[in-house]
Nucleic acid binder design. Structure first.
Lengths: 344, 344
DNA sequence: CTGTTAGCGCCTTCAG
DNA sequence: CTGAAGGCGCTAACAG
C-alpha cells in the first residue's frame, strides 16, 4: 500500500524560499559556495516546512544508501547480539543504518539473504561467522563492493577480516591441553557444525595424540550451536560413555547445555566431569558452577568490523585485519587443582 | 565512495531481449498479461545477465521500500534480542528487511533515531519499549504511516499494540503478593527507570498496604535495566537495610545482579533473602538458585508485532492489539514453602 | 499482449 | 555565487 501522503520535496522548499532547487540542495549538503544570507534563509524555510530529504531519491543518483548490511547466524545468541550492538554503535556514529539479516544458522537462508541485501544496495556488508563453504562465500563476496568478514578468512581484495589471532580450532586444542594438564584423560568434544571456529576433528585428535592421551572418535560429536543441542547430545554421550571425565563445548551455550545434562544425570561438575565452553557469554560467569571458557571480545569485534568497513567505504581499499585474543578464563567447571601451576 | 561499477539495468535486459523495458518490468513483477513465450525469453535473459532490479529505483516510484524499522532499547539484552529474532523471522517471510536501531536505553538517541528512520522511508515501524514520555511518543508516531508499539499503549489511529494483558506494574504487585504469601515481610524493589512495565511506586506501595505489610520508601530504588545496576544497587541496599528479606528486580538481569550481590555479601538465597525477577530470560533457569520470575513470550511478541504491522501495511488500518500473558514461574530463588498452596 | 510517455526527488554538469 | 537541463532505474497510466 503506497501512502500518497504529500511529501515535502526539495522543490517545495525552493519555491517557498524563492530560490532554485539546486540552491536548496547545496544548503542541505553543505557543498558549493552559497551566500550566508541565502543559506540562512533556506535553512529557515527547511525548518519551517519540516522538510526532510528523501534518502531514496538521493541514493538513486549518488549510488550510496548509507546502509550497511549485517548478516548473523543467530541474533538471539548472546554472542552475536553483542557483536551487533558494537557494529550498530559505530554505524550510528557515522550516520549509517543497519540492515539486519538473521540467517537462523541456515546456509540456505544465508544464500537467499545476500541477493536481497544486494538489491537494497547497501554500501557495505558485515558478514559474521558464515556457515557457507569457502567457495560459495568467496563467490558471494565478489558481488559486494565493500565487505568485512568476521570469524572467517577472505582474500585481501575481497574483504577485510576480523578474526581470532589464534586461528582455527585453537580453543578446542587449548581446552584439551588444559584439561589434560589438570588431570583429565577421557575428553568428550561437542564440535559445532559448520562453525568456522571448529577445527577439523583430526586437528583436535592430533592435539590429544601429542599428549599421549586416549582418542575415541565416539566421544566427539557434532552439535548445533544451541543450548538444547548441547543438552541432548550430552545426555546421550554420558549415557553411552560414562567413562568421560571432561567435556568441551563448542561454545558456551552448548557447554551450559552439557553442564545441565551432566548435573541432571547425577554426576558432579567438575569432580566427575569437567566442562569447558567457548565464548564467555555473560551467562558463563553466573551459573553454578561457573563455566571455564575462553574470553572473546564480542563488542570489540562488532566495533572493529564496522570500523574496518568504514575504512573501505572511505576509500581505503587496502586489506585490513583485526585480530583479537581468546583468553582462557578458568572458573569452577574446569578448575586449576590446588597445587597445580600452569602458565595461562 | 560511490561505486561506479556498471550496474545492469532493466534497460540492458530489454535491449538484449529485444523488448521494451516495460515488458521486462512486467515479467519481474508478474503483473499484466504477457505471452508465455516472451516471459520465458525475458526470464532467460535476466538469468543470463544476472540482472537484479534496484529496489532504490523502484522505491522512488512506488513509495515502498520493503523495509521496516525496528527500534529497541538494547539489542544485547536477551529480552530484546528474542523479540528482534521473532520480528525478523516474519519480515523475512514477507520479503521485507529489518532496519535496526538500537537506542542504548537513551531517550535522546531514541529521539534522534526516528528522523533517520523516517528519511529512509521505511514502510512501517516496530517500536519496542520506548523510554520516551507519552506526548513525545505520540507526536513521533504521528509521522509514521504504519506503526506497532510494543510494551506501551497508543491511540488506535496511530498504531497497533503488543502488550501484557495485565497492564502496568502487574509484575511488581504480583511478585509482592507472592512474597508476602510465602512469608516475606520486608520487600525491596529495584524499579526500572522509565520502563513502561514499571508501575508508579505508589501503586506498588498500595499493593503492600493492601496486605498490611511494612512500607519503607528507602527500600525502593530506581535502577537501570542492566545486571551491573542491579548488582551495585543491591550492594548498597542490603548494606543499608539488612532487615530486607526479599528483593524484586524490575527484570531478570537486574534480579540476577541482585542475587549475585546478596550471595557475595554472605547472605543466602532464598533462606535469608528471596529474589524475584521479571522476564524469564534464558539465563534465569540456569543459575543457582534458579530465578523465580515471570514468563514473557518474547519471541511471540516479536512475531506478533510484525504480523500486526503487516496487517496495517496490507491495508487493514483498524486497530489491533495483541495481549500476552505474564505467568509467574516459581523456581528456587523465591520458592513456595513446603505445605503452602497458592493458586498461581 | 506490448510499447510510449512521463515522472518519482534528488544531484551532476555546465552555464551564467 | 546561482540556475537550467538532464538523468539515476524504475513503474503508472495510457495507447495501440
Amino acid at each position: 500500500m503506497a501512502r500518497k501522503r504529500q511529501r515535502i520535496t526539495l522543490e517545495d522548499v525552493a519555491r517557498e524560499a524563492g530560490v532554485s532547487p539546486m540552491t536548496v540542495s547545496r544548503v542541505i549538503n553543505n557543498t558549493g559556495r552559497i551566500s550566508q544570507a541565502t543559506r540562512e534563509h533556506v535553512r529557515e524555510v527547511i525548518a519551517r516546512l519540516d522538510y526532510r530529504p528523501s534518502r531514496i531519491a538521493r541514493s538513486l543518483v549518488t549510488n550510496e544508501t548509507h546502509m550497511i548490511g549485517l548478516v548473523v547466524p543467530d541474533i538471539a545468541s548472546p554472542y552475536f547480539a553483542e557483536i551487533v550492538q558494537g557494529a550498530e554503535e559505530i554505524a550510528w556514529e557515522k550516520g549509517y543504518s543497519i540492515l539486519l539479516a538473521n540467517t537462523s544458522e541456515n546456509p540456505q537462508r544465508e544464500l537467499a539473504v545476500l541477493p536481497q541485501i544486494e538489491e537494497t544496495k547497501v554500501d557495505g556488508l558485515i558478514w559474521c561467522s558464515s556457515r557457507l563453504p569457502e567457495e560459495t562465500l568467496l563467490a558471494l563476496l565478489e558481488k559486494h563492493a565493500s565487505a568485512v568478514v568476521v570469524n572467517r578468512q577472505a582474500p585481501p581484495h575481497l574483504a577485510s577480516v576480523v578474526r581470532s589471532r589464534h586461528g582455527l580450532g585453537y580453543r578446542a586444542r587449548r581446552a584439551a591441553a588444559f584439561l589434560i594438564q589438570t588431570g583429565r584423560r577421557r575428553i568428550g568434544y561437542l564440535q559445532l557444525y559448520r562453525s568456522a571456529a571448529a577445527a577439523p576433528i583430526e586437528d583436535f585428535m592430533a592435539e590429544l595424540a601429542r599428549w599421549g592421551v586416549e582418542i575415541n572418535r565416539a566421544w566427539y560429536i557434532p552439535c548445533a550451536p544451541l543450548w538444547q543441542s548441547g543438552y541432548e547430545h550430552t545426555q546421550q554421550l554420558i549415557a553411552r560413555h560414562p567413562e568421560l571425565d571432561a567435556i568441551i563445548g563448542g561454545n558456551d551455550l552448548v557447554a551450559l547445555g552439557a553442564m545441565r545434562a551432566v548435573l541432571e544425570a547425577g554426576r558432579r561438575v567438575p569432580d566427575d566431569i569437567a566442562i569447558i565452553g567457548g565464548d564467555d557469554i555473560f551467562l558463563a560467569g553466573q551459573v553454578t558452577p561457573a563455566l571455564t571458557t575462553f574470553h572473546v571480545p564480542k563488542h570489540e569485534i562488532g566495533v572493529m568490523a564496522a570500523r574496518l568497513l568504514f575504512k573501505r567505504l572511505e576509500g581505503d581499499t587496502t586489506y585490513h585485519e583485526h585480530l583479537f585474543d581468546e583468553r582462557l578464563i578458568v572458573r569452577e567447571s574446569a578448575p586449576l587443582p590446588p597445587g597445580v601451576t600452569l602458565d595461562l
